[in-house]
Amino acid sequence: MKELLIILMSAILVNNYVLNKFLGICPFLGVSKKSDQAVGMGLSVIFVMLVATAATWPIYTYLLAPNGLAYLQTIVFILVIAALVQFVEIFLKKFIPALHKSLGVYLPLITTNCAVLGVTINNITDEYTFIESMVSSLGCGLGFLLAMWLFAGVRSRLEESDAPECFKGIPITLVAASIVSVAFMGFGGIIDKLFA
């Protein structure tokens, strides 16, 4: 249980996917203008990460690895994720229209999101068990949501700030992201202290 908590907390705070590992920067910069959109995107990413891990981990462990096909990992994972996202979208549209309405627009965007592919590959390279993989995916997703949501707040202030002409738009957003990232650096070492 303690190991699972450590994996979860370190994925959310210390090894934050956006602010520490630079995965999923495109949605982080693109969809973080308003906090409700940022939360919608974050929730969709958590959902897709969990579904993707639930599918790719068994495929790798029981199908690819025993048959010496581990080198097909990249191709198989991206295809599984792409197909899965399409399937989930169709399923939601048919059976849970309310959820589809709130998450639907973000789902296709997530297919080629590096954070989702990154988390499935990392779970394999870190040699996590199935439960650990699911927990780590949840943690990475929550970390993504946290970063998106916090940064949406920062950005709403940025919109009104009087930045130099050449810094307007993306450059000043990146500088702000850098400062938020410094804040997250402060979490380094917190896990050892918490669970010592």
């Binding site: 810094f167 990146l174 997250f184």
Partner: peptide
Amino acid sequence: AAPGGFLVFGCLIAL
């Protein structure tokens, strides 16, 4: 470290 990446990238785009 991570923050420097964002900072340098932002400044380069501004330049």
